[in-house]
Design a protein around this nucleic acid. Sequence first.
DNA 1: CGCTCGAATGTAAAGCTTTACACTAGCATG
DNA 2: CATGCTAGTGTAAAGCTTTACATTCGAGCG
Lengths: 347, 347
Amino acid sequence: MLRAKVSGKRNHSMPTIKDVARVAGCSTATVSRALATPEKVSDTTRERVAQAIADVGYAPNVAARNLRRAESKTIVALLPDISNPFFSEIINGMEEVAHLAGYQVLIGDCEHDPARAEAYFELLPTNQADGILLLTAEVPMVLVRQADGQSSFPLVMACEFFADIDLPTVAIDNHQAACHAIDYLISLGHRRIATLSGPAANPICKERVRGYHDTLAAHGLVAEARIVEGDFGFRSGYQQGLALLEPGRTRPTAIFCHSDEMAIGVLKAARQLGLAVPGQLSVVGFDNIGFSEYCEPELTTISQPRNEIGQQAMRLLLGLMRGEPVVRRQTLSTQLIVRKSTGRPDA
Amino acid sequence: MLRAKVSGKRNHSMPTIKDVARVAGCSTATVSRALATPEKVSDTTRERVAQAIADVGYAPNVAARNLRRAESKTIVALLPDISNPFFSEIINGMEEVAHLAGYQVLIGDCEHDPARAEAYFELLPTNQADGILLLTAEVPMVLVRQADGQSSFPLVMACEFFADIDLPTVAIDNHQAACHAIDYLISLGHRRIATLSGPAANPICKERVRGYHDTLAAHGLVAEARIVEGDFGFRSGYQQGLALLEPGRTRPTAIFCHSDEMAIGVLKAARQLGLAVPGQLSVVGFDNIGFSEYCEPELTTISQPRNEIGQQAMRLLLGLMRGEPVVRRQTLSTQLIVRKSTGRPDA
DNA sequence: CGCTCGAATGTAAAGCTTTACACTAGCATG
DNA sequence: CATGCTAGTGTAAAGCTTTACATTCGAGCG
C-alpha cells in the first residue's frame, strides 16, 4: 500500500486510474468497470485490478467522477436551526443510511433565514447536491414548487410539511399526539388546559392545535380553550409562561407546550411565580430532548422516534432518486412519556 | 434570466461557459478570466460577459472547476458529538467566515468513534476537502501527524489541543478559567471543593485540573483535592454527583464541573439527595449553554466566546491555506457568569 | 521607421473518469 | 461451415473549466 510521495509543495498527486491500468495491464475502461460494474469483468481481471489498486494506493477522483456522472453523491439536510438539540438524532439517522449508500450529507443551517435556504437550493441545479431533505417549512414556497415540479430534483420532508404542496413526507401524527396529551391531562382532572403553540403559521402546530381543540370538544370543554404562541425556544416559553400564569387572572391548571424547550421555560416561569408543579400547574412538553430528564421537575413529554424519522426520510429520498416505488407518506408513532411535571390538579 | 428548459427526464443541462462565450462573442478563456481575474479583461468585454451570463443564466460547474483546480472549496469540521449544544454556536461562527470566502463547511460528526474521524480525513488527499477544523482530540494520532507533516493538508484545532503535537490552535486558557472558578469558590468560603472532570486523558481537562490544583495549593488546600471523571454528558454528571455526595462521607461543599451538562446532572443528584443548592452545595459549570439559564437553580458557569472561536479558527485555517502569515496560537478570553448555583456554604 | 513591450484575447491541452461504440475470440446453432 | 451471439476488452470522446502558451494590435521610444 504505497502512498504517492509528496514533494515540497502542493503535490498530493494521487495515482489515477491510468496508473492502475498500467500496473494491471489493462485499459482504463476495464479498471473503471471493475469498480463500477464488477460483474462485467472476468474474475482474473477483477483480481488483477484489485491488486493493482492496492499496490499503487489508488482512490477515485470524485471531482472527475461527479463531473462525468453529473451528480455529487451529496444530500443537503435543511434545518431551521442547528442549535436545537431536537435535530441531532434525526441527523444521525439520516447519516447512517446515507453513508451506507455512499452519500454524504451536507447540513444546511438556515437559522430561520429564507435567503440561506435559497442558497442551499441553488446547489441542486448546479449538481452540487443530488437531493434535499427538508426539516423545516420556513422555505420560500416558490423554490419548493419549482424543485418539486422537476422530477429530477428530489425533495423529501421530515417532521414538517406544507399545507398546500404534497411532498413525500415522513413525520408523526401531530393531531393524534396532541389528542393523546390532552386526553391524558383531562383524565387527571384538568379542565383549564392551555396550549403554548409554536409559530401559528407552522402546519405541524396547526395540527397539534386541532388535536387540542378536538379533544377539548369531545369533553365539552371548548369554552376553556386558550392558545398562545411561541417560537419553540426557551425564552419564548418563559415569557409566554409568565403571561399565561399572570396572577389575578384565572390560571390554566395545565399547559401543553409544542416543544420541550418552551415547556422548560414555562417551568421556570412557574417557579418564579411560586407555583407548585405539578400541584398547581401541570406541564407537558414535546420532543423528549435530553434535558427533559434533568430539569426540575422531570418533564412529561411526547417522544418522537427521531433516529427512525431520519433513517426513513433518507431511505425515501434515495428510493425516489433511484426511481423505485416508494411510500410517499410515512407516519411514525409517538409515545407519551409520563414523568413528574404532570399530576392531578390540587383541589 | 432564462433557465435551460427541462425535458421529461434527467436533463437539467445548465448552460456552460461555451454558451456564454458564444453569446458574448469571445472565447471561453475570456469568460473564465472575466470571472476569476476581472482585472485582466477590458472593461467592455467584462460587461459583455456579465450580460451574457445573465442572459443565458449561467452558473459555473463546480465539479469541473474542482477537477481542474484540484480543490473542493470545502472545509470539514470534525465534532466529537453533534448532539452537544456547545458546538452549534461555534459552527455558526465557522460558517459565517467560510461562506464569505466561498467555502462550504461539511460537518463531520464522529460520535466519539475514531473510525469515523478517519473516514473524514480521507477526504483530504482525495481533494474532497481542502482543510480540516478539529473540534475534538479523539482522533487517531497517526492521522494527525501524517496530515500535519504535509503542508498542503491544513489542519487547525479549535477548543481542544494535543499535548504533543503543536497544531495551529484557537482556544481559551483552560488553566486560567479553572483558576478563576476555584478562586471564586474559595472567596465564598469553600474549602472542600471537588472537580468533576471530563475524560481524564483529554488535554483541556488536564489543564483545568492543573488550574484547580494550583489554586488549591495557593490557598494551602491541597489536602482537600478530590477529582472524579465524567464524559461531559448529563448522565455521567448525575452519576458522579451521586457518588461525590454519597451520604455518610464528608461531602464537598462545592463542585467544579467541566461541562454544563454534567453540572446539571449534579444538580439533579443534589436534589435527589435533598441537598440545598447553593446552601449545602455550590455548583459551577463550564460553557454557558442555553440550558444553564433554565435549570434550577440557574447555573453559575464559565462562558466561552463560542462564535468568535469558530470565526477565528476558520480565519486561521483559510489564512494557512493561502500561505498568509498567521498567528498559530490564539487564546480567547472567558468569563465567569455568576448565577444562582453558587453561594457561601452554610455554616 | 523599426523595434519592443504590454494589454487583450484566442487556441488548445490538461485535469480524471465514464461510457458509447467497436472489436475479438470463442462457442453454439442451423 | 457459415452465422450469430456473448463475454470481455479496448479506443476515444465527452463532461466543463482553467491556464500555459501563442497571437495580435497598438503605443511608445530611440
